[in-house]
Each structure stands twice: as structure tokens, then as C-alpha cells.
Amino acid sequence: MSNIQPVFIALQANNDTLPIIEAICSDNPQAQVNEYPAMVKINCPGRMVIRRSSVEERMGRDFDLRELQINLISLAGEVDESEDEFVLFWKA
């Protein structure tokens, strides 16, 4: 069975997260961006990846994926984190 259950990540809506959101949208064509007051929630069916290289390209500086912690509001899905990728996914 394919992974179709949605995962999500919610970030504070601010200048730090703009390039992160752009990177997510570019690396995950199925991502849907929902804007709420002060908060951006991105849903994606099955799997979502945040790539360090994509974020760095847009930020124009080095980025440690653990910096996500600062502006993270919530997430859904299992997490697999390495230096290069932060992945949310469901196995079912």
C-alpha cells in the first residue's frame, strides 16, 4: 500500500522560516502550504523531506538542521534526522 496518510510540519511565520518553507515546497512537489495567523502548516501525503543543501542554497549560509527547533511549532509523522536530511514519514 502506498503512503498516503498526511504528515505535516508547522513553523512560525517569520523571516527565518521563509527560505525553509521555500526549500520544502521545492523538494516536495505534493506539499500544501496553509497559512494561519503567525503560523504556517505544511501538509504532505506520506513523506516530507527537508534538505540541508536546499535550505542553505536559499539562506545563503550554512544551516544546521537542528536549527529547525527554534521555529518549529509542531509536526506529525515519524522522524528520521541526519546531518543532511530531516524526514517525516508514515510507514503505513
Binding site: A10, Y36, P37, A38, M39, K41, I73, S74
Partner: peptide, 9 residues
């Protein structure tokens, strides 16, 4: 923390 805090904002 999501809809309520967004509501606070």
C-alpha cells in the same frame, strides 16, 4: 498550541 495560540496572535 496550534489553533489556540494562532488565535492569540
Amino acid at each position: 498550541f496550534m489553533p489556540w495560540m494562532s488565535g492569540a496572535a
